[in-house]
Design a protein around this nucleic acid. Structure first.
Lengths: 189, 189
DNA sequence: ACAGCTATATTGTTTAAACAACATATTGAT
DNA sequence: ATCAATATGTTGTTTAAACAATATAGCTGT
């Protein structure tokens, strides 16, 4: 198995993505040109198009591959999904959202729907994978429902906190727990 | 003119050199393998050999291209060669020598002759270039003698300080000035 | 001393990326 | 509104780098 991808492909993808992340710290998304990205990545502009359809495709892939990986790695040390895991993920979402809303400014609103979709999809895959390990006997579709609900619930809560920011995130996340633990109990029969 | 080199060549050279610089901070020069370098640089090992003859060739080029450039850039803002320029260069040599003697440890002694040659050659080219601008009417060979003397004098002084380290480098360099200013005066007729 | 391991160095073939050229958009200043 | 400059995609050709195979040299331990 394991296809063994040409390292040039991996390197070029990384160069482009890293350049994009760096640029998006200084510039608004809408003001970043393909030329900007490829120049910073020391890559030909045509090469960009052999990896990504356009800027939006790049953003999508950066979010799902680069940023989400980082979040998931933060909690990948946890053995089982428990209160701590949930808290860690919640705080990671907040942290990421705050950083892009600072960095991207105007374009932030324009992209929240895309970002939301990617985020929930990634969280769902993550929870689904983990649930499978934790409850191997559980019916497949029930696992999926659990993953969907948890990812939406958590993301929704994070967005809610972002808009209100009444309490400290650490306190806020503790309020969520009773509801989330119920979902978990449903699954453990 | 200006050949316009394929950017892949430049990029690969930079990747290899940067990887080598990073590695030499953690490992002794003699323990760094070509595989180490190429892996860190995300480059095929065979590619290394199309750019450099071997590890020693790489070291030489890193010193003259990468490290010296850094030093020279630090003083490239100076309009004319004066006391400040000399001081800045002297302190840069000290700074660089201290860093490699810490980083390379054992291999440091083995390479000081090569390093010295490269250093003086680069300094000479730098002073020569600058002297040409500063005294355009001056005879070519006299310019060269000036550049040679100044580069040897400065490097020698730096080595002397490195071995004794009696005073602060900032104080030490001030002691050199009377001698160096004399050389300069000789050139201004 | 020699057997097994790893590093070095080289070469022919394949492939990813550079390049140049082109045809559209977009933008922006007059 | 217009014209120049700049950005976006696309394509055919060329080239640098990856790869795999090979031969040799240098350690290291038994």
């Amino acid at each position: 198995m394991e296809k063994q991808i040409d390292p040039r492909i991996l390197r070029t993808r990384k160069l482009i993505m890293d350049a994009f992340i760096q640029l998006s710290m200084k510039k608004d998304f809408k003001d970043i040109t393909i030329k900007d990205i490829t120049t910073a990545a020391t890559v030909n502009r045509a090469t960009f198009y052999s990896h990504f359809i356009d800027k939006y495709d790049l953003l999508e892939k950066v979010l799902s591959e680069s940023v989400m990986r980082e979040i998931i790695q933060e909690v990948s040390t946890h053995e089982v999904i428990n209160q701590e895991t949930i808290e860690a993920i919640f705080l990671s979402i907040i942290k990421f959202q705050s950083s892009i809303s600072n960095q991207c400014r105007r374009s932030y609103e324009a992209f929240t729907p895309q970002i939301e979709t990617i985020f929930k999809k990634e969280l769902e895959a993550f929870f689904s994978e983990w649930a499978k390990k934790q409850w191997p006997n559980q019916n497949k579709s029930e696992i999926e429902v659990f993953a969907v609900m948890l990812s939406w619930a958590l993301y929704g809560a994070a967005m809610h906190w972002m808009q209100n920011q009444t309490t400290q995130p650490e306190d806020y996340v503790k309020q969520l727990m009773p509801f989330i633990i119920n979902i978990e109990n449903d699954k453990t029969i």
